[in-house]
Amino acid sequence: MNVDPTTLLAILAMAVATYVTRIAGLFVADRLVLSGRAQAAFNAIPPAVLVAVIAPTALTTGWAEAIATLITALVATRLPLLATILVGVVSVVLLRAVL
């Protein structure tokens, strides 16, 4: 049940960064009108960050992970979240056994 000091600082920094985004809208309400391009860039932030986070595991680990990524991406648009995770995990286990 130990808490590392550096980890605690990182958690606090993440907490502050998150809370700032949650209340920042109060100060820009009615003033924040984004143009088409800026709106598109803003909408792209979450997926762009999430993709960058998984790219090493998904694309540079090996063929099993890369193929499992492709399969998961194909089912992700049709299945609910938990089913998508299940398909990804099962396919990576099978592919690792075969390849």
Partner: peptide
Amino acid sequence: HPAPILTLAFATFLINARHILMGA
């Protein structure tokens, strides 16, 4: 380990930046 504090804070801010529009 040790946790990269600034990198984590920056990535957290970017991922949660959508909250700004949602809150507004």
